[in-house]
Amino acid sequence: MSEIQIPNGYYQLWLRYLSAQGRVPEQLGFSPAQLQHLQHVLALPMDTQSSYQFFNEIIQHSIQFLDCPTLVFELARYIQPEHFGVLGYMASRSNSVAEALQYMMRFSRLVVDGTAAVPMRLEQQPDALYLSWPLVDEKYSLVHEMTFACMTQLAMQIFDFQHSPIREIHFAHAPRMAMLHYEKFYGCKVLFKQAEYQIVLNLESLSLKPQQADPSLIHLLTKQAEDAIALKPQLETVQQQVQEQVAHYLRYEQQVPSIEWVAQRLFRSGRTLQRQLKQEGTGFKQILEIERMQRCENLLRQNVSLSDIAQLLGYSDQSALARAYKACTGQTLLKRKQQLQQAEDALSLQQNTP
């Protein structure tokens, strides 16, 4: 599955907004083919998924026809848990904000799916909580804005926030409307063209409980979500998932992750993860060494000293790093550093030549 798929709840949300305005889709100037496709999608169960491309087409047409540049925000004001399917109900019945976020990461494919859909990451820093995911392609900017707006609006409904828990909103794409609309809707600092998409939350919001927490219902919903995920095609091998987690940890934490940490992020036990990797013909140690060497290459290009690289990658000293590099690549570390320096000098000379 290459194209992004979104919940049919998004289409139903659009229809609910139109109804509140006293309109029906037939009044918006859609072509007969578009109306026929719309009728088909709107007849599907809310917790199934359909084409993002068609949804984008419908929303862009609606924005122009209704002369409503803030349509995404207007739709989000009508959001209900059912528009996110089982995941929306799980969030509304979870025991805390922290638990709801864990469910979002674990079952995000039930909302937005496809090979271009990158799972969210949740990182707790001393000052705040960061919910992040990278930019894949600017053509998906609408689904990012829609999901951001609906997530934040639904959270305000579910949890009894005295003040908004959102400290900052970061978008990786350029703004789609005037900045004042974003700042008014989110009530916080909003930045664009950032390295990643991020929602920055206050730490104290993690322990807040929803007004309708229901642990027994959560158990049933979790089983339903697990069954739904199991029916979806595998987008990545276990090895690829581990590689992404290890690479991220090496880059942002600047130390070596344990298999237990990676397994927890992938919602498995360490033993299960080892078994699955073995079935794919590899192991955690092999993946870790490969990712360490790739990170080493990046740090060499940044002219980081060999002793600092060894420390960042968890080696006892520079000599241990050099031995590991030679064993993995068949080339000495000093030779590789010289090659990179020569290539950089050649590029600099080329750029400065009239």
Rank of each mutant, 00 (worst) to 15 (best):
L231P: 00
Q311A: 06
S51M: 08
L38C: 13
E236N: 14
T237M: 07
W261S: 07
H170V: 04
D160F: 01
E226G: 01
V118F: 08
Q264A: 11
A43M: 02
Q245V: 01
P215Q: 03
Q243W: 11
E291W: 02
L131Y: 11
H181D: 12
Q64L: 09
H170K: 13
A172Q: 10
S96L: 05
E297C: 01
Y140R: 01
L299N: 08
S108P: 06
Q125L: 15
H181P: 00
H61Y: 07
Y52Q: 05
I166Y: 08
K337M: 02
F30W: 15
I199F: 09
Y197I: 01
D137S: 14
G270D: 12
Q153S: 15
D317P: 06
L142H: 07
M46P: 01
R23E: 04
M156Q: 07
D160N: 04
T48Q: 12
Q294E: 15
A324R: 13
D127Y: 08
I6T: 03
A172N: 09
S216R: 07
S62P: 10
L203K: 15
A195R: 03
Q338V: 11
Y89N: 07
Y11M: 12
H173C: 13
W261N: 03
G114E: 04
L87C: 15
N303P: 05
F55T: 07
R93C: 07
A195F: 00
R23D: 00
Q286W: 04
R106M: 15
F30R: 11
Q49G: 02
A98V: 00
E57F: 11
M146H: 00
S92Y: 10
C68D: 05
R93A: 04
A195L: 03
L191R: 04
G9M: 08
K189D: 12
Y325A: 00
L15H: 12
R268W: 08
P126S: 12
L180K: 12
N298L: 00
A100S: 15
E289V: 09
E74I: 02
P215E: 02
P81V: 04
D214L: 05
P354K: 13
R275Y: 06
P354F: 12
D67P: 01
Q157P: 14
Q254R: 11
L13N: 09
M105G: 14
L131A: 09
H83C: 10
Q49D: 03
E145P: 05
Q351H: 10
H181Y: 11
A320W: 02
A247D: 12
P215I: 02
A33G: 02
M104P: 00
Q241M: 15
H163F: 06
Q241P: 14
M105V: 14
F159G: 01
V118C: 06
G283V: 09
L87N: 14
A263T: 06
